[in-house]
Nucleic acid binder design. Structure first.
Length: 484
RNA sequence: GGCCCCAUCGUCUAGUGGUUAGGACGCCAGGUUCUCAUCCUGGCAACCAGAGUUCGAUUCUCUGUGGGGUCACCA
C-alpha cells in the first residue's frame, strides 16, 4: 500500500445529547476512513468531571449504531490502543506532562483561580488581551519543590515560545498561520489531576496513531496550541481538516438549542428517518460530481473527499431536510413504514386499521410524528364547523344534499362498503342532481371528517366504515339546522 | 475589541479569464384532481463593494464591507 494507513476518530465528550453537528463530523470521519480502508475510532473525552452526564456515552454509541456508523475501535469494542475513555488514561497524561516539565517545556503553576480571575478582570479593564501573566513560569526549582512539599494545589502549564510563527495546512482551507504571541500558556493538567482537552487530544491522537483530524471549524483557533504541543513532544502532525459549522435555520449564529431542534435524538423523536437525516448531512456543504442529492452511505463513501467540502459555514435548511424525509418515507415499503411508525401511533388508534390507513397518508407524511394529526379524524370524535359545511351553499340545500346522500348510502350494505361502490353511488347522485362538484364533495368532506383537507373522499369513507360514516352524516345534518 | 476563517439566486451548491452563470430546496403560476398531498410543466431569483492586473473579470491580487468562529483549571 503506497499511502499510509488512514485512521480517523471522533472524540465526543459525554456531556449531554449529541448535536447534529457532531453527527455530521462522525459521518465524515467514518466515510473517509472507510473510503481508504482505514479505521474509525471512537474516543470518549470525559476529562471534565463537573459536566459529565450519566448515560451519555451509551447514548453516543447507540446513535452511531442507529445511523450505521459504528466505530472500529472504541470503549465497547475495544482495540489495540485501549482504553478509549480518557478518564481511564489519567496516568498516561501525567507521565507526558511530567516529561514536558523535565524537558523544560512546561511548568508548575500555583496561582489560585482567584488571582487568575482578578488578573483577567484587570486585563479586560485595560483592554489588553486576556492571558496568563506567566508569574510562575520562572519560579526557581527550590520554590517549586517547597510548594510541592507543602502540597499546594497546582496546574501544569505549557511554556509557549515568544514571537513564533505557528502554521499548518488545513485540507479544506489551505495554509493557516498564527503568531505564538496569541497563544496563552495553556493549562495541560488541571488541579484535580485531570488533563485539559488540549493535552489529552494531542497525546491520544498521537498514541492512537490518528492520521487525519477532522473536526468542527470552531477548533481552528485552538489548533496552534495543539501544534505547539506536538512540537514540544517532537511528534509529527496529523492532517487537519476543519469542517464548517452549521448556522441556525434563520442564518443567525452557530446552530443552538435556543433556536430550535439541534440534538440528533430530538430529530429522531420527531420522526425524521436516520437515512434521510444522514443524506441531508451528506449534501449540506458538499456535492457529488454530478450534483445527485439522493445518495446512500455507500455511494457517499465512494465519492467523499474532505477537500471538496465547502469552506463556508452553512445554514441548516430544515425545509430541505423535510423534503428529503418525505422522499425517504414514500420510498419505504408499507411493511417498513408500519414498523417505523409504531412509536408514533397513539395508544387510542385502532391498530388493525393501520394497513388501510397507510396508503391514505403515506404521501402526506413529512415526519412520522405527523401521523396523529393526519389520522385523528378517523377514530376520534370530530367537530363539524357549520360555516365550513355551508361555505358554498344554503342550509336548505345542504340539508337536502345530506338527506339524499344518507338515503342513498343506507341502501349500501356493510359488505359493499368499498371505495369503488361508494364512488359509483355518490357520483351518480351528484350527477343526477347536477350539484356542483366542488361544493358537494367539499361539503361531504367536512361532514365526514370535520376538516377541509383530507385524503381522497371515497377511500376515506371506506376506511371510516358504514356506521360511523352514516352517523357523522346525521351529525352534520343536525349541524346544518342548528341556529347559531 | 485582538486573532482566525469565509463570501455565486432566500437556502444548499455547479462552474469559467470570454457561458443565455447550470441544478436542487423553498416560493409563485399552470396541469392532473372532490380538497390537501403526490406527480408533471413553467416562472421569479445570484456572481458583496471599490481599486488593480488584463483586450476582457463572477473567476487572479489588494482594500473595504458583511457574516461566522475563538479568546477558561469547558470540550
Amino acid at each position: 500500500m503506497s499511502d499510509s494507513v488512514v485512521r480517523t476518530r471522533v472524540a465526543p465528550s459525554p456531556t449531554g445529547e449529541m448535536h447534529v453537528g457532531s453527527l455530521s463530523i462522525v459521518l465524515k470521519n467514518y466515510a473517509y476512513a472507510k473510503r481508504h480502508h482505514g479505521q474509525f475510532v471512537l474516543r470518549i473525552e470525559d476529562t471534565d468531571q463537573t459536566r459529565e452526564v450519566p448515560g451519555a456515552q451509551e447514548q453516543i454509541i447507540s446513535i452511531l449504531d442507529k445511523f450505521h456508523l459504528p466505530a472500529d475501535e472504541g470503549p465497547i469494542v475495544g482495540g489495540p490502543f485501549a482504553p478509549y475513555v480518557q478518564s481511564q488514561r489519567l496516568e498516561i497524561y501525567r507521565l507526558h506532562a511530567q516529561q514536558l516539565i523535565e524537558k523544560g517545556q512546561a511548568y508548575y503553576c500555583f496561582c489560585s483561580k482567584d488571582r487568575l480571575e482578578k488578573l483577567r478582570d484587570q486585563q479586560r479593564a485595560d483592554h489588553s488581551p486576556p492571558k496568563y501573566d506567566r508569574l510562575c513560569r520562572n519560579l526557581s526549582p527550590q520554590e517549586v519543590k517547597s510548594k510541592l512539599d507543602k502540597e499546594q494545589p497546582y496546574v501544569i502549564r505549557l511554556k509557549v515560545p515568544d514571537h513564533q510563527k505557528v502554521s499548518f495546512t488545513d485540507l479544506i482551507r489551505g495554509q493557516i498561520e498564527f503568531d505564538s504571541d496569541q497563544v496563552d500558556d495553556q493549562v495541560l493538567i488541571k488541579s484535580d489531576g485531570f488533563p485539559t482537552y488540549h493535552l489529552a487530544v494531542v497525546v491520544d491522537d498521537h498514541l492512537m496513531q490518528i492520521s487525519h483530524v477532522m473536526r468542527g471549524e470552531e477548533w481552528i483557533s485552538s489548533t496552534p496550541k495543539h501544534i505547539l504541543l506536538y512540537q514540544a513532544f517532537n511528534w509529527p502532525l496529523p492532517v487537519y481538516a476543519h469542517i464548517p459549522i452549521y448556522l441556525n435555520p434563520n442564518g443567525k449564529g452557530k446552530m443552538s438549542k435556543r433556536h430550535g431542534t439541534v440534538s440528533v435524538g430530538s430529530f429522531l423523536d420527531q420522526g425524521y428517518l436516520p437515512e434521510a437525516l444522514l443524506n441531508f448531512l451528506m449534501i449540506l456543504g458538499w456535492a457529488t460530481n454530478d450534483e445527485r442529492e439522493i445518495l446512500t452511505l455507500d455511494e457517499y463513501i465512494l465519492e467523499f473527499n474532505p477537500q471538496d467540502i465547502s469552506q463556508k459555514t452553512v445554514v441548516f435548511d430544515l425545509k430541505k431536510l423535510q423534503w428529503l424525509n418525505g422522499i425517504y418515507i414514500r420510498n419505504l415499503t408499507n411493511k417498513d413504514l408500519i414498523s417505523k411508525l409504531k412509536p408514533f401511533v397513539p395508544t387510542d388508534f385502532p391498530s388493525q386499521f393501520l394497513p388501510q390507513v397507510l396508503p391514505l397518508i403515506k404521501e402526506r407524511l413529512v415526519v412520522l410524528s405527523d401521523f396523529e394529526d393526519l389520522t385523528a379524524f378517523i377514530y376520534r370524535p370530530i367537530e363539524i364547523n357549520q360555516k365550513d359545511l355551508l361555505k358554498k351553499s344554503s342550509a336548505n340545500q345542504v340539508a337536502e344534499q345530506l338527506d339524499q346522500l344518507i338515503s342513498t348510502l343506507s341502501s349500501l350494505s356493510a359488505q359493499n362498503w368499498l371505495t369503488l361502490q361508494l364512488e359509483e353511488k355518490i357520483r351518480n347522485l351528484q350527477e343526477k342532481q347536477n350539484w356542483s362538484k366542488g361544493q358537494f364533495f367539499m361539503m361531504v368532506r367536512v361532514a365526514i371528517t370535520g376538516q377541509t383537507q383530507t385524503p381522497p373522499l371515497f377511500e376515506t369513507m371506506a376506511v371510516i366504515g358504514h356506521d360511523l360514516t352514516l352517523s357523522r352524516l346525521n351529525q352534520a345534518l343536525l349541524t346544518t339546522k342548528k341556529v347559531t
